[in-house]
């Protein structure tokens, strides 16, 4: 029963395998190039397991010790996960203890598989979803661990490798830009932080910027909801 579910889950996770291993290696090399020990990427991949947030974490760890700002940033960066949870409420409801791990591992990619794919007949959906979560998590840990090892062994000039994070966010930004009906949130997301950066400076602009985005989106709710109504749900 378990092997059948694993076999059914595996092919669906192959694209995630490529993505997680490559990004995990970049992240591992990046964080070790900034002077962190080789086990750091393994630790964060096991505990945090949120790709974009781990890239952001490198910068947070290089800055001043500020738990509140780290917490606020995590909530903003990962706020989208709230909606994956909402979408999976019913399916994850009655899964017992397995559920705790599956919610822990509900990343963007895992969500896109468990939400969009059905297992073949005879394979239980809950086991299928569990194996998708488990496989994706192992790919991420594998990539990050390899990156940590490469990063601490390789002695090439890594200057500028931190741009991988900027490039990743630019690409995700473009994907949203092309997909969304309304580009107002994207424009606000760029313009308000730039304004706050000019006013508050590099060290303290993030929290004002997050509050400004939340406030602006709340004020603009009516017109934006109207635009969103023409969209297919989520």
């Amino acid at each position: 029963m378990n092997t059948r579910a694993l076999r059914a889950a595996f092919p669906h996770t192959l694209p995630v395998f490529t993505g997680y291993v490559v990004l995990g290696i970049s992240y591992g090399v990046l964080i070790t190039s900034q002077g962190f020990p080789f086990w750091m990427p393994t630790l964060t991949s096991l505990t945090v397991f949120a790709g974009s947030m781990e890239f952001v974490l490198v910068n947070i760890l290089l800055g001043a010790f500020d738990l509140l700002q780290a917490f606020m940033m995590t909530l903003m960066v990962n706020a989208r996960h709230l909606f994956y949870g909402i979408a999976m409420l019913d399916q994850y409801k009655s899964l017992g203890l397995k559920k705790l791990y599956m919610i822990f591992g509900l990343t963007d990619e895992t969500f896109s598989i468990v939400c969009g794919m059905e297992p073949p007949e005879g394979v239980s959906k809950s086991k299928f979803m569990l194996f998708v979560t488990l496989l994706d998590h192992s790919y991420w840990v594998l990539g990050c661990t390899l990156g940590g090892i490469f990063g601490s062994l390789l002695r090439f000039n890594t200057k500028g490798i931190d741009f991988a994070m900027t490039a990743m966010f630019v690409v995700i930004f473009l994907e949203h830009w092309q997909k969304e009906k309304s580009r107002v949130p994207a424009v606000l997301g760029l313009a308000l932080p730039v304004g706050c950066l000019l006013i508050f400076g590099a060290d303290s602009f993030m929290i004002p910027a997050m509050l400004a985005i939340l406030a602006a989106l709340t004020i603009l709710r009516k017109p934006l909801e109207k635009a969103a109504e023409q969209e297919v749900l989520l």
């Binding site: 974009s52 952001v56 903003m76 960066v77 706020a79 989208r80 709230l82 909606f83 909402i86 900027t166 966010f169 630019v170 995700i172 930004f173 949203h176 830009w177 969304e180 309304s182 580009r183 949130p185 994207a186 424009v187 606000l188 997301g189 760029l190 313009a191 308000l192 932080p193 730039v194 950066l197 993030m206 910027a209 997050m210 985005i213 989106l217 934006l224 969103a228 969209e231 989520l234």
Partner: peptide, 14 residues
């Protein structure tokens, strides 16, 4: 949930 993801990645670029 619909509008925040579009805005957050701009913030992260900055």
């Amino acid at each position: 949930g619909k509008v925040l993801p579009g805005a957050v990645f701009g913030l992260l670029i900055v």
